[in-house]
């Protein structure tokens, strides 16, 4: 999956909209939105590529206080399919209006929990048949999880100073594996070298990649070298 790398742009806020556009295009959704709720103030900060008329209407009606896809989804650890809100009168109210703006009530929200009690919600929607929806969900759910955490980490880590002093906490196993990747070894090779399963290699690599805010392994290697965590291969 190729997306704008939000951790390499100067201003996350300027690129958040394009990130959502690309996400929709790649994963075949109509619209996407991201919101984060400040754990202290309760303020909602968000981005969406919905039509402006709907965004305006949504804000005017203060639907963010009503919309269960925002208020409820944070309570789940798993992605929340909006189908579970079918009987929810608040949901019906918001999405009856949404329908008038050409926005489907078929969607889901991926909740991401951050280390400080912060929470981010990536929502996607698509007007399609139930069969098509289930198929789509199954094929993109992993990419959605990864995109949600990428967006959340980068939005909450904004500010030049915050980023300058943030040093990802990589374990020695994660560093060791990245070092072998930098040396050109495959996951299978690394498993053999370290006498661990290739699945263990993968789980540490995935974790290290996400901690570095990288979208791909080569990028993670580059970043780890930049941070003096590993030596160039």
């Amino acid at each position: 999956m190729k997306l704008i790398d939000l951790s390499s742009v100067q201003n996350v806020h300027q690129h958040a909209g394009s990130y959502l556009d690309e996400l929709c295009q790649l994963l075949e959704f109509d619209y996407a939105s991201y919101a984060t709720i400040n754990p202290v103030s309760g303020d909602v900060q968000g981005y969406a590529n919905y039509p402006d008329a709907w965004k305006l209407h949504y804000a005017k009606q203060s639907y963010h206080n009503l919309d269960p896809t925002l208020t409820q989804s944070a309570k789940s650890i798993a992605p929340v399919d909006w189908g579970c809100f079918e009987q929810n009168t608040k949901f019906t109210k918001v999405f009856k209006d949404a329908h008038d703006f050409g926005i489907s009530d078929r969607g889901l929200t991926v909740p991401v929990r951050g280390p400080y009690g912060d929470c981010g919600l990536l929502s996607v929607t698509r007007d399609c048949s139930p069969v098509e929806w289930e198929k789509l969900k199954k094929s993109v759910i992993g990419d959605l999880q990864a995109s949600a955490v990428h967006m959340h980490d980068n939005v909450t880590k904004t500010g030049v100073l915050a980023r300058a002093i943030s040093m990802p906490a990589l374990s020695s196993r994660e560093v060791e594996i990245l070092q072998w990747v930098a040396a050109g070894k495959s996951q299978q090779d690394i498993g053999d070298i370290l006498s661990i399963s290739h699945r263990t290699v993968e789980v540490h690599l995935r974790s290290g990649r996400e901690k570095l805010g990288a979208l791909s392994t080569p990028q993670a290697v580059g970043r780890a070298i930049g941070l003096n965590l590993i030596m160039p291969g």
Partner: peptide, 14 residues
């Protein structure tokens, strides 16, 4: 349990 190492952190790991 982690012997002083930081924990794994990933959206794909529960």
């Amino acid at each position: 349990i982690l012997d002083g190492e930081p924990p794994l952190r990933s959206s794909r790991l529960w």
